Simulated assay, not measured.
Amino acid sequence: MTNPLKRHHRQEGRHTPNLWPGWLVAPAALILVGALALGLSHGADALLTSENTGKKPVSVQDVSYRLAST
């Protein structure tokens, strides 16, 4: 049995390149990107839905009034 990772001597003429690492890298990259997207969405959700830290809620009108008066 031959080792698939071992480089073969260059042959003249047509030959098929060994592309099996692409079939390993592509699914791994998709899984990594999916896990990253899932983590970012859960992190953003946790950040946006976190409990108030005891500060008084401010309405949008108060913020716009305060910005206009400065």
Rank of each mutant, 00 (worst) to 15 (best):
G34Y: 00
D45Y: 14
V33C: 08
D45T: 12
E51Q: 12
Q61S: 07
S50T: 13
A26F: 11
L36E: 05
N52E: 06
H9N: 11
L30K: 01
V60M: 12
T70V: 04
P27I: 02
S50I: 14
T16D: 05
T49Y: 04
L40D: 06
E51S: 13
P21C: 01
R10V: 11
V63G: 10
K56A: 14
S41R: 14
H42N: 09
L40N: 09
G43V: 09
R66W: 07
G39W: 00
H9A: 11
L67D: 09
V63H: 14
D45P: 05
W23R: 15
P4D: 10
L47G: 09
H8K: 15
A37V: 01
L36S: 15
S64G: 01
L32Y: 02
W23K: 14
G54Q: 01
I31W: 06
L19S: 04
I31T: 08
K6I: 02
R66Y: 12
L36H: 03
A37L: 10
P4N: 00
W20N: 09
V63M: 04
P57T: 12
V63N: 03
R66A: 15
S41W: 07
Q61P: 03
H15A: 15
T53Q: 11
L48I: 15
V58F: 02
G13D: 06
W20L: 12
Q61I: 06
P57S: 08
L40I: 00
P17W: 00
P4W: 01
P17A: 07
L19C: 04
P17D: 00
H9F: 09
Q11A: 14
P57M: 10
A26Y: 01
K6T: 07
S59Q: 00
H15G: 15
Q11P: 00
L32Q: 01
K6S: 05
G34L: 02
S69P: 04
H42S: 15
G22S: 07
K56W: 05
A26N: 03
T70C: 04
S64T: 15
N52A: 13
L19D: 06
G54F: 01
P4E: 03
M1A: 10
D62R: 00
G34Q: 05
Y65M: 12
K55N: 12
Q61C: 03
G39K: 00
G22L: 13
D62P: 02
A35L: 00
G13S: 05
